[in-house]
């Protein structure tokens, strides 16, 4: 299922990813440093987008590193890229964190406000380094972006999004599909 491409930089990236996976499978501890350098920005960016507080993001990133190391035997390279897998591990930890009662109490954020915050555009302070974000957000209309953000950063299911936005489930599914299609077309 790994994307096969003829373009040189991608195949190099792919090769290093395969090597990294192999080293992690061999429990090579030095591989975690390489892993950090390669993935921390992407993981940290998404975690920060979810938890919104830098110190919490650091905690979650630490937890993610530990979890990735320990659960690595359960990663199946035939089912997807390492990036996808580690991103989902980190994203789930971050979403668990904002859903934990302790976090809600400490951040004094009500669930409604939380989702309202997610509907807003990413704060400028996040300064995404990849030029991709602006391009992507230009391509997504606000409705689509709202839904993708709730699904991806809010950890909502499509039914929950429908409830939250007071939309028919069918509409949510159509918009989500369309939005993700736009995203996948952009990277081709």
């Amino acid at each position: 299922m790994l994307p096969v491409s003829a373009s040189t930089p991608e195949s190099v990236a792919l090769e290093t990813e395969i090597q990294l996976v192999q080293r992690l499978r061999d429990r090579d501890e030095g591989a975690m440093t390489i892993f950090y350098d390669k993935y921390s920005a992407a993981l940290y960016g998404v975690i920060l987008r979810i938890v919104k507080k830098e110190e919490t993001a650091e905690d979650v990133l630490q937890e993610a590193m530990v979890k990735i190391w320990h659960s690595f035997p359960s990663y199946d390279a035939s089912k997807g890229r390492l990036f996808t897998w580690v991103m989902n591990v980190s994203r789930n930890l971050a979403i668990d964190k904002i859903r934990s009662r302790q976090y809600r109490v400490s951040s004094r954020t009500q669930p409604i406000e939380e989702s309202a915050a997610l509907r807003q555009a990413a704060e400028p302070s996040f300064r995404p380094e990849h030029i991709g974000l602006q391009e992507m957000t230009r391509q997504l209309n606000p409705d689509q972006r709202q839904i993708v953000d709730l699904l991806y950063f809010g950890g909502f299911t499509q039914s929950e999004v429908a409830e939250e936005l007071n939309l028919p489930l069918g509409t949510v599914k159509t918009r989500a599909r369309a939005a993700i299609k736009v995203l996948s077309k952009l990277i081709r």
Partner: peptide, 14 residues
């Protein structure tokens, strides 16, 4: 890959 790209677009160097 669409969602991965979206995630990657949010990258922030810690």
């Amino acid at each position: 890959s669409g969602l991965d790209a979206y995630a990657e677009a949010h990258a922030v160097t810690p």
